[in-house]
């Protein structure tokens, strides 16, 4: 019985992540359009796009690794989702109730992009290869402040588990974004790169690289990538809410918190042009790194 609840809960979590991620994507398109003084597509446009992509024939075959690439992405997103506590007390979304630790999660989160890199490499499209190298360089850039922020939290609260961090916040009564502000700043600056909106959209770069790693993938491949991207966006936002904003007791609070933190990269992205690769890396190794070091010092002293 308990196993059944867990399996149903896991399925419910995946559906929730898909729906929320897709809707957020649509709302972002609407917000972008309003900033451009356009009317913009309806908020459910992403669902229509996904459905249409799923209905297209997909007769592209460059080898097995290309098929495995989107599958890697999807698996990575879903597995990462399973280790994130969606609500504080489990509730309707008990997941696998793994006392997840952050170090494991850091490894899991780069698994998908690496699989995608292999898949994109096999398509033989030069744009894909350039996109992959850019993506990996950018990952080297933002992973460092991101890991520093997480390590600072681990030192400060003497735990590596996400639920432990959430409990610590519940006990002290303040969110981590206030009790360890430098870690929060470093993590938010790293988040700009993680979401790949402008000015850090150097991987996709539609006009420059013809959408980069996905340039040879259409139809069902693209549908898989789109849905796994939506799930992964939800995963990252929930992780931020869990470790910095004290988690959420119910769905409404979760949506409010994730949406408000999602607006940081989105709104920064709408008004920014694109960086070059070396500019992006230099950005992450500048102020975000500084705040990461500051967070480490703050955590080890206090």
């Amino acid at each position: 019985m308990e196993l059944l609840t867990h399996i149903l809960g896991a399925i419910a979590t995946v559906i929730l992540a898909f729906v929320v991620g897709m809707s957020y994507g649509g709302i972002v398109r609407k917000i972008t359009a309003r900033v451009h003084n356009r009317i913009g597509p309806p908020w459910y446009q992403n669902f229509i796009d996904a459905f249409k992509l799923y209905g297209k024939t997909t007769a592209i075959h460059h080898g097995w690794m290309q098929i495995m690439g989107p599958a890697f992405l999807m698996v990575s997103s879903v597995v990462t989702l399973m280790f994130i506590p969606v609500l504080t007390n489990g509730g309707w979304f008990p997941n696998l109730n793994f006392e997840g630790d952050l170090i494991f999660l850091l490894y899991l989160m780069v698994f998908g992009p690496l699989g995608m890199a292999l898949g994109a490499g096999q398509t033989g499209n030069p744009n894909s290869a350039i996109g992959v190298t850019r993506g990996l360089s950018q990952m080297v850039g933002f992973e460092i402040p991101w890991v520093m922020a997480l390590v600072a939290l681990m030192i400060q609260f003497d735990t590596t588990s996400i639920t432990g961090l959430m409990e610590a916040q519940a006990q002290s009564g303040t969110w981590n974004m206030f009790s360890s502000p430098f870690a929060f700043i470093a993590a938010v600056l790293a988040m700009l790169g993680m979401f790949r909106y402008s000015p850090f959209d150097i991987v996709g770069a539609p006009t420059e690289l013809a959408s980069g790693p996905v340039s040879e993938n259409g139809g069902k491949y693209l549908f898989t990538m789109m849905s796994s991207g939506s799930i992964f966006a939800f995963v990252k936002l929930t992780l931020y809410v869990d470790i910095f904003m004290g988690g959420a007791d119910n769905l409404v609070i979760l949506l409010l918190k994730t949406f408000s933190i999602y607006m940081i990269p989105v709104l920064y992205g709408i008004v920014s042009p694109r960086y070059r690769t070396e500019q992006a890396i230099r950005f992450f190794w500048g102020w975000p790194l500084f705040f990461g070091v500051l967070a480490l010092i703050y955590a080890s002293i206090f």
Partner: peptide
């Protein structure tokens, strides 16, 4: 762009022939 805004009809640019 903003004057005629084809995106409100769902019309959107695709980068490569595979996606279009």
């Amino acid at each position: 762009t903003s004057r005629y805004d084809a995106e409100r009809l769902g019309v959107r640019g695709a980068a490569t022939p595979r996606q279009a």
